[in-house]
Simulated scan of single mutants.
Amino acid sequence: MYFKSHLKFLGFALAGMFICQQTQAEIVIATTRIIYKENSKNVDVRIENRGRSPLLLQTWMDTGDKNEDPSKIVVPFTITPPISRLDPKRGQTVTFVYTGSQALPKDRESVFWFNALEVPPKPSDAQRQDASILQMAFRTRIKFFWRPEGIGGDLASASAIEKIKWSIVRENGKAGVQAANNSPFHVSYSSATLTVQGKKYDVKVDMVRPFSQSTFSVEGLNTIPSGSRLDYNAINDYGGLIKGNVVL
C-alpha cells in the first residue's frame, strides 16, 4: 500500500499541479545535506511545516535517478516514519538507520539522495469551484553521504576541496575545465566563474566523486588560454560556502 500511494503522489509532484491554494513549498528541512558517519547508530533530521495547513509528508531515498520508481529502489537504509502528517507550525523528526543489507565501500564516501514530498490537504468544495486556484505537491531532494570511519572527518572533508586539481580540456569541440579529485570525499560546487582577459564566463559546475574526474563546460568559450583564473564556491559539510580560486 505504501509504494502504490507513494507513486501516486510522486506522479502529482512531477506533473506539477492540481487544484487548491498552495503555491510554494511549506516544509523546511533543517539541513541542506545529510552525513551519516559509519560509527553512528542513526541520524536524525528535523523537518518543519512552516505553512498554515496540515500536510502529508512522504520520504524515501534514491541512488541518483530522480525519476526512478521508488518501489524498485534498493538502498541499505531505512527511514522512519516513511509517511507522516505534519500539522501547521509543527515539526517531525525523520530517523535514518543503516541496515547493512548492502556492503558499502570502506575507502570512500557513498552518495544517495533523500526525497521529501509534501502533499497539501484536499481542497474544500468552495475551493474546487474556483477555477483560478492552483495547488502543487512539492518535492525536496538533498544529498545523503555515507562516510566510512577510516577516511577522516570534517577537517579531512574540507581539505579535499583544496586538493582538487584543475586543468583545461577540450571535449567535442568545446572548451571546458576538468576537476580531478584524488580524495575519498565527494566535492560539490554551487557556482564557478572563469576570467579570461578580464571577461567572466559561467562554468557549469556540479559534484566530483571520490577518486574520479569531472569535466565542466564553460558558456561562450571555444578555447581557454593558459593563465585564466577560475573562482569557485564549494560546499562544506554544513552547507556553507568555501570560496577559492586557481590559475589554470
Results as ranks from 00 to 15, higher is better:
106 K>V: 09
161 I>C: 02
188 S>N: 04
206 D>I: 03
135 Q>E: 15
218 V>F: 00
66 K>A: 14
42 N>G: 05
214 S>L: 03
156 A>R: 05
169 V>H: 05
205 V>H: 03
193 T>I: 07
90 R>K: 15
232 Y>F: 15
239 G>W: 08
157 S>Q: 12
1 M>E: 12
167 S>T: 14
67 N>R: 08
124 S>N: 10
84 S>P: 01
179 A>F: 10
237 D>A: 13
99 T>R: 06
44 D>I: 08
110 S>Q: 10
233 N>E: 15
225 P>N: 01
166 W>M: 11
51 G>H: 03
146 W>Q: 02
102 Q>M: 15
164 I>A: 05
73 I>F: 05
95 T>A: 10
71 S>V: 04
48 E>D: 12
166 W>E: 08
124 S>R: 10
247 V>D: 10
2 Y>F: 15
151 I>R: 02
123 P>A: 12
150 G>D: 11
216 F>P: 00
59 T>D: 04
207 M>C: 09
146 W>K: 03
247 V>K: 14
100 G>K: 12
164 I>H: 05
54 P>N: 09
235 I>A: 02
35 I>G: 00
231 D>I: 00
94 V>H: 09
8 K>P: 01
43 V>R: 05
42 N>K: 13
22 Q>G: 03
223 T>I: 05
101 S>V: 10
242 I>E: 09
232 Y>Q: 06
108 R>L: 08
227 G>H: 05
181 N>K: 03
171 E>N: 13
160 A>P: 03
217 S>H: 03
50 R>N: 06
96 F>Y: 13
42 N>E: 11
214 S>Y: 11
112 F>H: 02
230 L>R: 01
202 D>L: 09
11 G>W: 08
118 E>W: 03
8 K>M: 12
163 K>T: 13
29 I>W: 08
54 P>H: 08
72 K>I: 01
171 E>S: 09
214 S>G: 04
105 P>K: 07
18 F>W: 14
96 F>M: 06
107 D>C: 11
8 K>V: 09
209 R>M: 13
125 D>C: 06
232 Y>G: 07
195 T>I: 06
54 P>R: 11
243 K>E: 12
82 P>L: 14
9 F>N: 15
226 S>E: 15
53 S>I: 12
237 D>E: 13
207 M>V: 15
33 R>F: 06
74 V>D: 07
222 N>W: 01
100 G>M: 09
111 V>D: 01
112 F>Y: 14
144 F>S: 01
8 K>I: 11
33 R>N: 13
104 L>D: 08
149 E>K: 13
164 I>L: 15
153 G>R: 12
57 L>R: 08
198 G>T: 06
183 S>Q: 02
236 N>Y: 04
163 K>I: 08
126 A>P: 01
199 K>A: 09
162 E>C: 04
178 Q>S: 14
16 G>I: 03
203 V>S: 02
117 L>M: 13
132 S>N: 15
115 N>Q: 10
95 T>H: 14
45 V>R: 00
185 F>Q: 00
8 K>T: 13
169 V>C: 07
145 F>A: 07
87 D>R: 07
139 R>M: 14
55 L>R: 04
3 F>T: 11
181 N>C: 08
136 M>H: 10
16 G>F: 04
166 W>K: 06
241 L>G: 06
168 I>C: 01
3 F>K: 07
234 A>D: 03
41 K>G: 12
84 S>H: 07
102 Q>F: 12
128 R>P: 04
161 I>T: 07
